[in-house]
Every structure is written in structure tokens, then in C-alpha cells.
């Protein structure tokens, strides 16, 4: 394993060992962000490829005091946005100040057993729900609540203010809570029998 300094130097010299390590450490993060934003596996793969290639081209301009992973998320976010624009050029920008409806589905699925919550089906349901959110809300949830970036990092990746990031995250959580509550409602009813 190369330490961060050696890794960066290696990437700049196009050292294959550095590339392998960089790819392995980051491919999952880039893929999850792209999948959350785009919803389609083939699109997520395209973004992964474009992201690593752009990163290698731009590595000479990377500021060593910044974090490589956050820098890479930002490149991935921008590639995913470009692909979204290509897929849906018409999507209007929603108004962040619009008021949200009050939560409507009020079953408490939070105490369902772990194995019911950690299934492949729940994973797919959650990612399908994320990728059907309004476009601007998707990355906020992935970056903060899946990738556990700080609000400052999340804002930096998206090129928005921290307060805008918090608003988007809040809206994303409420909408996803609603979708998942609908999904889990039947299972809670079965538990109660």
C-alpha cells in the first residue's frame, strides 16, 4: 500500500500500482453516487469510466491539501449531471423553498428485524427511490447519508452552499421516508399478525 503522498506522486507519473490502488479505494463510492443519481447500471458504469479518466487527466492540478476522495466525488457528480442533462434535457428546476407536504405514511417500520431491512430487495428499493427523487435532491442523500460526508464536503462536491445542501438533504430524507414507509407498510402489517 502506498501512503497518500506516494499515491499522488504515483498517479501523476501514471504508475500502474498507484492506479490500481486508487481504483480499488474509490470505485465503489463513485459507482454508488452515479447509481443514486442516474438509476441505471449502464449509466453508472459510464460515469465511473469517465470519472477515472478525467481524474487522471486533471491529477496534475489536484491540490495536495484537499482530500482525493472528495475531489473525485466532485468529478463524478459533474459527470453524472452531464449524463442526466443528456438523458433528460427538459427537467425543470424545482423550487427549494416550496413547502413539503406533511408526512402521510405513519407506520413504524423502524423496529423491523435487521435481516428484513438489510436485504438485497431493500437495497434495490432504496436506490430506485433515490433515483426517482427530484434530480437536485439525489446527490445530497447519497453523499451525506450513504457516503457519510460532512455538510461542508457535501456542499463542495455539489458546488452549493452548506445551507442549500441541508435543505436538499432534508427534503430528500422526507421523500425517501415516505416511499420506504409505503414499501414496508405490508411487512409491518404481517409482523403484527
Amino acid at each position: 500500500m502506498l501512503d497518500d503522498t506516494k499515491l499522488l506522486a504515483g498517479l501523476r507519473q501514471r504508475d500502474p500500482q498507484a492506479f490500481t490502488q486508487f481504483f480499488d479505494a474509490n470505485v465503489d463510492r463513485v459507482y454508488r453516487l452515479a447509481l443514486g443519481m442516474l438509476g441505471q447500471r449502464a449509466d453508472a458504469e459510464e460515469v465511473v469510466q469517465a470519472t477515472f479518466l478525467s481524474a487522471f487527466e486533471a491529477i496534475g492540478r489536484f491540490e495536495p491539501h484537499a482530500q482525493l476522495s472528495t475531489w473525485l466525488y466532485r468529478i463524478a457528480y459533474n459527470h453524472a449531471l452531464m449524463l442526466l442533462r443528456r438523458r433528460h434535457p427538459e427537467e425543470p428546476l424545482p423550487d427549494d423553498s416550496e413547502s413539503l407536504p406533511l408526512p402521510a405514511t405513519l407506520v413504524d417500520w423502524s423496529t423491523l428485524p435487521e435481516d428484513q431491512l438489510l436485504s438485497e430487495e431493500v437495497h434495490e428499493t432504496l436506490f430506485a427511490a433515490i433515483s426517482s427523487l427530484p434530480e437536485r435532491l439525489r446527490a445530497a442523500f447519497v453523499l451525506r447519508d450513504i457516503e457519510t460526508l460532512s455538510t461542508a464536503e457535501c456542499a463542495h462536491v455539489q458546488g452549493i452552499s452548506e445551507s442549500a445542501c441541508k435543505v436538499r438533504l432534508h427534503r430528500a430524507r422526507l421523500l425517501l421516508r415516505e416511499r420506504l414507509s409505503q414499501y414496508f407498510r405490508e411487512q409491518v402489517a404481517e409482523e403484527a399478525l
Binding site: D28, L118, D145, I146, T148, R177
Partner: peptide, 22 residues
């Protein structure tokens, strides 16, 4: 209280997604 519980569980479910690797 239910909205709080389920939102907190949603966030934990989010954290769990890091298990999903390519």
C-alpha cells in the same frame, strides 16, 4: 415520534448501503 423513528432508520439504512460494492 413515528416520523422521527423511521427517518432515523432510513439514515441508518443509508449507512448500510456502503456494504454494496462493485
Amino acid at each position: 415520534q413515528v416520523v422521527l423513528n423511521t427517518t432515523q432508520r432510513l439514515i441508518l439504512l443509508g449507512h448500510d448501503q456502503r456494504r454494496y460494492v462493485v
